[in-house]
Design a protein around this nucleic acid. Structure first.
Lengths: 365, 365
DNA sequence: ATGAAAGCGCTAACAC
DNA sequence: GTGTTAGCGCTTTCAT
């Protein structure tokens, strides 16, 4: 009673047999009156098959709603087409865009991403790694808040491709991808200098963040290159809050001291706090004082008065590039060491230049 | 030459054989001088086995660094111990805590989460669903921005457990989990009334958001229940920005009209904008006007002057509960319909009450 | 060009 | 108690 020309006529028991797993390759073979091997060739478009057969098999498969079991496939193929993403930033503001870029890149290659949150709990991280290895992921991405380096987890990984994004391993061989904080800071300060500013202060976050130290270095490099001196007390390290930006600005513009004509801030919250402080003192931004922030977090840059010029870390691009590199590693390309991707300066009203977007040059460190 | 008492002595060719896949259950069986079946029983702690054998096998497995291939296991077991999370909010501010709660809950049950971003692109979503089905996920979580309901994707899913979190399907049978916006708003306004406020205005977001309509309803219910009237022009719908909060507050406190003595705001950005507007007008918060926000987004609540009392949507709890329910569904418990989880009122300085946290009662709708 | 059959790494039913 | 074996759903030789 089987009618191979009309593959939709599945027998009732077939439906019952598959619990709810759907048809298997066997069912397709039966309905199309070919062998299992032939179906495999047809669907994977390899081997040599008569065009007519191939098409017929594919038609049957579609009619049946056949969906190959990726788990069974992975048992043979070299890859599982999954990777793990382990975050120690509890899916925070920085992890998000990275994950997004990564996912977008990998989805194009049909690779799925396991999202694991370890939040700096080593035991939890160990469990996740264990689980991911059990699931035979093809690679792993580690991301984190960037206070400092972390021990590599290379012990158990026996050569599995691993890439650290927005975080660093203490293993110098490890593949790490980071934004070029130093270059971003340099670009921001050069821009201020190009606008004629001479007395540029830097209000920033806690020095235990490597990013803080790098941005400070970039700031100083730009000053030095332009022959400008760093005013006394012009470098202010505090926490990452608006309040600190507000207080630090107040300090810079207090009593007799000669005030800065520009503020380069370690993040947008600090910048916004500073902008508030200046406004309340009747100091005009950008006319009297130009401000540049860091992170280009639009919740801050756009709510600030005036809207903030800010350095964008290009985290989405960082995630995408991480995906590309991980794929390359999975494909066998050897990689090692730290790379930094350029930042972008997004110009808004707070620095007195025409709205624009400037991208730093790639750093091949 | 095999020494079962010293299982670490693997033969060199064994290492070579496993490409980099690590030892298989076969290797463990060989080294422990037992059958494959016995190893399986020992490791999965089922069947009946002499304690000594069990322990010995486990010791060998550990020594070999054996890690069962979860993919192969899933071929037999009823489940793959993976679920898919499809987000249409591009991993945004609301998706994050939900994902975190979900992941935490599922990780406890050894279930891994595939993160997929569809960002309202139906084609991309279809591809993701396809991929997840191919990977034989045990269930699926759909989350989204909450402008409105979305078509269920139940066609292809043949009974796979699906739960919508922070989003709704147009299928009335679908399992949906949402915060109780109405109850949260009611709680906020009741709190203001309890503090003696009588003229309470509501500045909120765009009405196309169901959340806006629900919060408005809660606001009105609380007023009505207390026998208070809604002042004319006291309900102001705009966008979700600080600027709108600022402008709306300015409008409410303009010219001759009798001003409100409290503002209930649709989100924290609006509330912060309003607080700024009042401060600039010399209106004291909370003395003259109390303010309550919504979302409890600490970036906003804590940077606001004064810090904002705000309704917390308890998104992390929502994610965890979604995990619990999905597990229940996977375990066979039938579920259907929409549930809403209570919000929490987090009291800070902007409303003039003692710092505190109040939780709404569960809504068994 | 197609079919048959040997596994991938594991579980589970059934022998002994 | 432990070993044997038949698969899970698929890919991939190797015959034909």
């Amino acid at each position: 009673m089987k009618d191979p020309a009309n593959p939709t006529s599945r027998t009732p028991e077939d439906d019952r047999l598959r619990r709810r797993i759907g048809p298997t390759i066997r069912d397709v073979a039966r309905m199309a009156n070919v062998s299992i091997g032939t179906v495999s060739k047809a669907l994977n478009n390899n081997g040599s098959l008569k065009a007519e057969t191939r098409e017929r098999v594919i038609a049957v498969a579609n009619a049946l709603g056949f969906r190959p079991n990726s788990l069974a496939q992975s048992l043979h193929r070299r890859h599982s087409f999954t990777v793990g993403l382990i975050s120690n930033d509890s899916f925070g503001r920085f992890t998000m865009p990275i994950a997004e870029g990564l996912e977008a890149c990998l989805a194009d290659r049909q690779i799925a991403v396991f999202m694991c949150n370890a939040t700096d709990d080593p035991e939890r991280e160990r469990q996740h790694v264990e689980q991911l290895l059990g699931k035979r992921v093809d690679g792993m991405v580690i991301t984190a808040r960037r206070a400092d380096r972390r021990p590599g987890l290379d012990g158990a990984l026996r050569g599995l491709p691993v890439i650290y994004v927005f975080s660093q391993s203490d293993d110098p061989e490890a593949v790490c991808l980071l934004p070029d904080d130093e270059g971003g800071a340099r670009m921001a300060v050069e821009h201020l200098i190009g606008l004629g500013r001479q007395r540029i202060a830097h209000i920033t976050g806690p020095e235990r963040f490597e990013a803080v130290r790098l941005r400070r270095d970039g700031y100083r490099q730009a000053l030095t290159a332009a022959g400008l001196a760093e005013g006394e007390g012009y470098y202010l390290s505090g926490d990452w809050s608006e309040k600190w930006g507000y207080d630090a600005a107040a300090r810079l513009f207090a009593h007799g001291r000669e005030p800065p004509d520009a503020l380069f801030c370690g993040n947008d919250q600090i910048a916004r706090g500073a902008a508030d402080a200046l406004r309340e003192r009747g100091i005009a931004v950008p006319e009297d004082v130009a401000i540049v922030g860091f992170d280009n977090w639009n919740v801050m840059t756009e709510a600030s008065r005036p809207p903030l010029t800010s350095v964008d870390l290009n985290l989405r691009a960082l995630g995408r590039e991480a995906g590309r590199r991980l794929i390359a590693m999975i494909d066998g390309t050897p990689m090692r060491g730290v790379s930094r991707l350029p930042c972008t300066l997004v110009i808004r009203e707070s620095c007195g230049a025409k709205t624009d977007t400037l991208t730093g040059t790639e750093d091949y460190a």
